[in-house]
């Protein structure tokens, strides 16, 4: 079995006295794509933010390739580079062009050679169909284009694992596909990914494993086939039904 890139053990996260994640354990192995689904407010996004140490945690530990990542830990910037994160609202830096957005972290934080990163970035931009936008400013791009740039930006830091936090939730429907296709392409090339999404058909296509998060805990963990055709738990059935519409007569 390939090694665990991300290993979360007994994670507990509270905001004041409200528990958001309770004794949660989860592993993501090399080359694996894990999709987290669940009702709004069940702590999916918080889980990703914990993995990136944007939140402090009240119990348990999170390890990336065996090394612990903590909000108050040492070498935090270095640890965070092992975890790439793509946000719901892209969070491109509005004052920088596309290519400057991508180069900022590799050049300033990783001290890599500008030319080398630039070549890599241009290649990735070409792959997502945005090569000619390299010198555009974010506000000149559509939502879908911005999100593809955000993915390239995260990739260029060479993270061990990529986190996607509802990356299509802010997009107009016709732009959802162009972003999801990029992510599916990454899965095919064996990137290790942890994805939070509400797009069920995408989840089914991209996932190696699906996790249902509800009430601060993992309720179900199955293969996509199993999850969508024969969910094990009542909650999973209910959750899947919430995506169907029926008119009562």
């Amino acid at each position: 079995m390939p090694e665990a890139v991300l290993k979360i053990s007994h994670l507990t996260k509270r905001f004041d006295d409200q528990t958001v994640l309770d004794d949660l354990s989860l592993e993501v192995r090399e080359g694996e794509t894990v999709v987290i689904v669940g009702p709004s407010g069940c702590g999916k996004s918080t889980l990703l933010r914990c993995v990136n140490a944007l939140e402090d945690i009240q119990g348990g530990e999170i390890r990336i390739r065996g090394e612990e990542i903590r909000h108050d830990g040492k070498n935090l910037p270095e640890m965070r580079r092992k975890v790439g994160m793509v946000f719901q609202n892209y969070e491109l830096f509005p004052h920088l062009t596309v290519i400057e957005n991508i180069l900022l972290a590799p050049v300033k934080a990783q001290k890599r050679r500008r030319e080398e990163v630039r070549a890599e970035a241009m290649e990735l931009l070409e792959r997502v169909g945005l090569k000619e936008k390299a010198d555009s400013l974010p506000r000149q791009l559509s939502g879908g284009q911005k999100q593809r740039v955000a993915i390239v930006r995260a990739l260029c830091v060479h993270p061990d694992i990529l986190l996607f936090d509802e990356v299509t939730a802010a997009l107009d429907p016709e732009m959802v596909r162009e972003v999801l296709d990029v992510i599916i392409g990454l899965a095919e090339r064996g990137k290790t990914m942890l994805i939070v999404t509400h797009e069920m058909s995408f989840a089914r296509a991209v996932a190696d494993r699906i996790i249902l998060l509800s009430d601060c805990r993992i309720l179900e963990e199955s293969s996509p086939e199993e999850f969508f055709t024969a969910p094990k738990t009542e909650q999973a059935k209910k959750f899947l039904q919430s995506f169907e519409f029926r008119r009562s007569r």
Binding site: G84, M85, F93, A109, R153
Partner: peptide
């Protein structure tokens, strides 16, 4: 979120 985005890139 802009700061968090920068931090998550390892800055």
């Amino acid at each position: 979120l802009q700061e968090e985005s920068a931090l998550s890139l390892g800055l």
